[in-house]
Design a protein around this nucleic acid. Structure first.
Length: 909
DNA sequence: AATCAGACTTGGAATAATTTTA
DNA sequence: TAAAATTATTCCAAGTCTGATT
């Protein structure tokens, strides 16, 4: 639909203001549809031109669609030898750095310096760590290590000591003013209201000096009850109010708006709107400080609920059916009261609490899945049964799980597994050659178990359900500032094999079981830490970090990254930042004209190569919706984004056309042939000239520098905002094309879905073609055929009727059952034909729809990119039940948007 | 200025739950 | 009523981006 890039470009340049209007849409180009050849399938297909990946890939064809990097690129070296990511020959500095890095690495491996994964005690950290870092991560690590050393004797004291030492160090540390401000965690008030029972962890008391002041000021962290004490913050607010946004979470803009003074306000204004709307609705709320009884039963909900009565008879019946279910569901919904955070104010978030995410926090820690239960099934080695130790067996079992999957086709996966498993087998094992190992016995055991599980009785299923529910009840919620909020992932990730995506160098490595000692919990001061659920163990640490949202964290052993237990998408915490994200995108709409002007001008800025590259990248990010493309290390899959594009990823075609072909996030292939702005084309040509395939096109540009420039153009603007903006604006534009005749709800939904597809294509959200796709297509064909046959039959029947002949008995179906005879009334039969023809039409639409959707994933954009208010407004306007668009979890996640749109039905992004 | 590290968002696949079909 | 199809939810890897370090 939106195609001509040129025209648009022109349009853009002209009047900035035009841009503001919806009409000025940039018309980004969906990756999947090369402007030229609309029909071409989305990237995934092994398109001929990109010949590279051909069959060589077989081993990998796994995800049919996704293109693995592999040999495909003839030029590319095998995985092991990753091509160097030369930034640019021009930059000596860079090279130097690189060398350093390398050196470092080698050192690490060689010496004791551990790659993060290990729990060894970090040497120097303690001191530097003093600040938050120390608190959070380091500490726990240290403890864990210590604990390990002692292993068995989980004497509390041990921990205590450890815990304290670091603290002490901290205290003495001279803390800069800034730090002080930041260290909320340390602030832990000296007043542990509750005695820290045996759990020594509660180091809070550690004498953080500064805390004294702040702490005292702060209303005792008492939980909900006393919240009423908000008052004073005002003084603080003054100075900081505006700067808030800078943090990136401008969620607070609301508060800013209140202050009114805000000059930066232009954008915050948008948010004001929203907030104002809510204000209208609930003026009283304002008066009452935060202390909001969350429990209140929400009456209005019911009002919303009732679905519009359908006219169609058929449908009616269907609905009746649904009714009872709905009732049930409703109940459940009520069970978890919605916290209407958007009706509250954030007045307390001022001054030094500017970056606070919570005031009081209470939860039950994390849930550790069940232990591994040995099954005793041996493997076959060279045909002989070999019994394994529980540990050996456990890993073998994890491996067997993937026997029939595409993971097995990756050399790296098997190789990594073997390397690690060999270590577990030990030196005395008879298992010397991986090729001779046969895991099929274990595999069939797993299959059997799966089958049994599938066939378990109703009682068993219910029982499990109950248990699951109980677990969620216990661990699934946290009390934040007096509100019960759902936690997203309260179960620690279980051990298993690491499955990367694409060609990940670490695929197949062991993801170790996480012990309590490796886990740090984040809790409110004065809250009793939950008891460690594993007997004989204790938590690695407890912190009180008000500036983060995580409830628990640990370090994962594969990449040494932190893992977090976070609130669910339905929580207020996530809701706030989600809304703020869309507000930022909405602000971008206001100044997109200015920004486009900026980069369009700089496209020609040959004097300043950096600026020129930056402008070109901005063009790409804005128009093609690419991600920014941060640098990646060698031990990750080789994927790229805008800034990391290499010459091998772009081809200069004729007529100002560029062909992009690379693996993006999650190794999803991005393949697009686009006609670009002539100047952009020229720039690419320049940037690429004289460079090797493996060199970066934007060698003078780095994501941080790009972002900082964006930041200068608009507060809070970063590269990813363009994706949000373009996705949302595209959706709005697509939906605006709706001319509602007499459409059935199904048709309306279909229209909506098609609009979503446009967005998904823009963002290059793909999925692998469902395995059953082909079958499904055929099935629909069969149905069409059958229907056609029946029509022919009816027609023949009519003929006989008209000829005065006796009705012929219909042939029995394949199942031998008799078919209902046709009516002897000609009119009735004609109507029947019409109905059948209508059915065929629908089937054909369904087929086509299915085929276009087979490799498009619309969920991601729906969940992350499209401002929900756009969809909601549309639903409201065209009388479509929200449930047709958003499933339960989505409705909960977007509760803020639903409320807002109800109040302001004329919302426009 | 380049890296590092932390924290949080984004993403497709896997799995579970529900609905439809046979 | 079971199996198949669909839809919803969970899982956890892989990005982005920021502030601190080197």
């Amino acid at each position: 639909m939106r195609i001509d890039s040129d025209d648009e470009i022109e349009e853009r340049d002209t009047p900035a203001m035009v841009l503001v209007t919806p009409a000025d849409q940039p018309a980004p180009q969906p990756a999947t549809q090369p402007t030229t050849q609309p029909t071409t399938k989305p990237a995934p297909q092994p398109t001929p031109q990109t010949a590279p990946q051909t069959n060589a890939t077989d081993p990998v064809k796994d995800n049919n669609n996704k293109r693995k990097r592999e040999p495909s690129d003839s030029a590319l070296p095998p995985p092991e030898q990753k091509r160097p990511r030369t930034t640019a020959e021009a930059k000596p500095a860079v090279d130097a750095n690189k060398m350093e890095v390398i050196e470092k690495e080698s050192n690490n491996s060689a010496t004791t310096v551990t790659p993060k994964g290990e729990k060894e005690v970090q040497p120097p950290k303690p001191q530097g760590a003093e600040k938050k870092v120390a608190e959070n991560v380091t500490k726990p690590v240290g403890k864990a290590a210590a604990a390990k050393a002692k292993n068995a004797p989980p004497t509390p004291n041990a921990q205590e000591k450890e815990g304290q030492t670091p603290k002490k160090e901290e205290t003495p540390k001279t803390v800069t003013g800034k730090k002080e401000a930041q260290t909320p965690k340390k602030e832990t008030p000296a007043k542990p209201l509750k005695k820290a029972n045996s759990t020594p962890d509660v180091k809070k008391s550690s004498g953080t000096p500064k805390n004294t002041k702040e702490e005292q000021k702060r209303p005792v962290t008492r939980s909900s009850s006393a919240k009423a004490t908000p008052t004073k913050k005002k003084n603080k607010s003054e100075s900081e109010s505006e700067s808030e946004s800078g943090s990136g979470s401008e969620s607070e803009s609301e508060s800013g708006s209140e202050s009114g003074s805000d000059e930066s306000g232009s954008e915050s204004g948008s948010e004001e709107e929203s907030s104002s709307s809510s204000e209208k609705k609930t003026p009283k709320k304002k008066t009452t400080p935060k202390a909001k009884p969350k429990a209140k039963p929400t009456p209005k909900k019911k009002a919303k609920e009732e679905p519009p009565p359908k006219k169609k008879a058929k449908r009616g019946s269907k609905q009746e059916k649904e009714e009872p279910k709905r009732g049930r569901k409703k109940k459940e919904e009520d069970a978890v009261p919605i916290h209407k955070w958007w009706e509250e104010d954030d007045d307390w978030k001022k001054g030094e609490k500017k970056n606070w995410k919570w005031r009081t926090l209470e939860h039950q820690g994390v849930y550790f899945g069940p232990d591994y239960e040995p099954h005793g099934i041996p493997i076959l080695y060279d045909g002989e049964k070999v019994k394994l130790t529980p540990a050996q067996e456990e890993w073998a079992t994890y491996f067997a799980r993937y026997l029939d999957t595409d993971h097995m086709k990756k050399d790296q996966f098997r190789k990594n597994f073997w390397k690690e498993w060999k270590a577990v087998l030990g030196k005395n094992t008879t298992i010397k050659s991986f090729k001779k190992v046969d895991f099929s016995l274990i595999k069939s055991h797993l299959d059997t178990a799966k089958e049994e599980r599938k066939n378990r009785s109703k009682e068993e299923k219910n029982k499990e359900k109950e248990e699951k529910k109980a677990l969620k009840e216990k661990y699934g919620f946290a009390i934040v500032d007096g509100h019960k909020e759902a936690i997203g992932n309260f179960t620690v990730e279980p051990p298993g094999l690491f499955l990367g995506r694409g060609q990940h160098p670490k695929a197949g490595m062991f993801k170790q079981r996480v012990t309590p000692e490796q886990i740090t919990l984040n809790l409110g001061e004065g809250v009793d830490p939950p008891k460690c659920p594993i007997p004989g163990h204790k938590w690695g640490g407890i912190v009180h970090n008000h500036e983060v949202t995580w409830l628990a964290t640990w370090r994962e052993n594969i990449n040494g990254q932190n893992k977090y237990v976070l609130f669910s998408a339905q929580s207020s915490m996530r809701g706030r930042s989600d809304r703020s994200k869309f507000e930022t995108a909405k602000r971008l709409k206001k100044c997109i004209g200015k920004i486009r002007k900026d980069y369009t001008a700089n496209l020609k800025n040959a004097d300043d190569e950096v600026a020129q590259q930056r402008a070109t990248a901005m063009w790409v990010i804005d128009r093609l919706a690419l991600r920014v493309g941060n640098d990646k290390s060698e031990d990750e899959a080789d994927t790229v984004g805008c800034c990391s594009l290499r010459c091998e990823h772009v081809k200069l075609l004729d007529d100002n056309k560029l062909e992009f072909d690379f693996l993006g996030k999650d190794s999803m292939r991005y393949h697009n042939v686009v006609e670009v702005d002539p100047q952009v084309y020229k720039n690419f040509k320049t940037f690429m000239s004289g460079k090797k395939k493996s060199e970066q096109i934007f060698d003078r540009l780095s994501p941080p520098s790009l972002n900082s420039h964006l930041q200068s153009l608009m507060d809070g603007l970063t590269a990813k905002v363009f994706r949000t903006y373009n996705a949302s604006i595209t959706m709005q534009k697509e939906l605006s094309k709706f001319d509602e005749d007499e459409m059935t709800v199904e048709e309306k939904v279909l229209f909506f879905n098609r609009a979503s597809v446009q967005v998904a294509k823009l963002c290059n959200h793909q999925r692998s073609v469902p395995k059953t796709h082909q079958t499904q297509m055929e099935k629909i064909d069969d149905q069409i055929k059958d229907t056609e046959d029946e029509i022919a039959e009816v027609k023949a029947h009519i003929k006989r009727l008209n000829a005065g002949k006796e009705a012929k008995k219909r042939a029995a179906g394949e199942d031998g059952k008799e078919k209902k005879p046709f009516s002897n009334n000609v009119e009735t039969c004609k109507r029947k034909i019409e109905a059948l023809e209508d059915r065929i039409r629908k089937l054909k639409i369904k087929k086509k729809e299915k085929d276009t959707l087979k490799e498009v994933s619309t969920s991601t954009s729906k969940v992350n990119y499209i401002d929900p208010r756009i969809s909601l407004v549309w639903c409201q306007k065209h009388n479509v039940d929200i449930k047709k668009i958003f499933a339960k979890t989505m409705r909960d996640k977007f509760a803020w948007a639903i409320a807002e749109v109800e109040a302001t039905p004329d919302f426009v992004f």
